[in-house]
């Protein structure tokens, strides 16, 4: 494992911890899109089916369990927790999952590494992860007061994706036969979706003003 990959995974972990901190400690999920969180839960549930079929490493297994557990518990908190659920911006979070899930499923049945259930679901999880942030970005645009934790959460998620690209470049040049077209294209598309957010995030940082996305 190279430094970019490790840094990417740690940034991903940090993003989840920031979100759990907000939900668990402040008991608020204001500004967080339940749609995005549900899409992540589906993403991990379909991608990490290999927990039952392949053993890669202790690190790999532990991280998968953490991402699965955290994504489902965040969804649980937002839907069921008697205090947290009240802070959910239901009326603002209007993106339809269905419009993302269906095209991803169709695409996965046509473009995959192998036409088996496991490989189709793996490709589906990559397509879905690439677009899962969209409801969150839409919600951010509609939120007047983006709190620091929410801004940091989205920033850390974007940083995780950018670090994964560096990891792929590194692996491409250092490992023989390391080629993952589907992963790469999805990863680049996903990272590009953050470009606009990054721009405003750095602007607000530089000027030391509150983050706000133009509608």
């Amino acid at each position: 494992m190279n430094i970019f990959r490790l840094a990417g995974d740690m940034t991903h972990l940090a993003s989840v911890l920031v979100l759990l901190l907000k939900i668990h400690t402040i008991k608020s999920c204001a500004g967080i899109s339940l749609k995005t969180q549900e899409l992540y839960a589906i993403t991990f549930a379909t991608r990490y089916l290999d927990l039952f079929t392949d053993y890669i490493s202790f690190y790999n297994t532990v991280m998968k369990i953490i991402f699965l557990g955290s994504s489902f518990s965040i969804v649980w908190y937002m839907r069921r927790h008697k205090v947290v659920r009240r802070s959910y911006d239901r009326d603002q979070d209007t993106f339809r999952h269905f419009f993302l899930i269906l095209p991803c499923l169709l695409l996965a049945t046509f473009i995959n590494e192998k036409l088996t259930a496991k490989e189709v679901l793996w490709a589906f999880s990559l397509y879905l992860e690439a677009v899962a942030i969209l409801p969150q970005l839409v919600l951010l645009q509609r939120t007047r007061n983006i709190d620091n934790l929410t801004g940091q959460y989205v920033f850390l998620l974007g940083a995780y994706r950018a670090l994964y690209i560096l990891n792929w470049i590194y692996r491409y040049f250092t490992e023989a036969r390391y080629v993952h077209w589907i992963t790469w294209i999805c990863g680049v598309v996903q990272t590009l979706l953050y470009a606009d957010f990054f721009y405003y995030y750095f602007q607000s940082w530089k000027k030391n003003v509150k983050l706000e996305l133009p509608a």
Binding site: F67, E113, Y164, N167, E175, A176, H180, T183
Partner: peptide
């Protein structure tokens, strides 16, 4: 084995 079939990333 083809390295592309081993999915060791998260």
């Amino acid at each position: 084995a083809n390295s592309a079939s081993i999915k060791d990333e998260l």
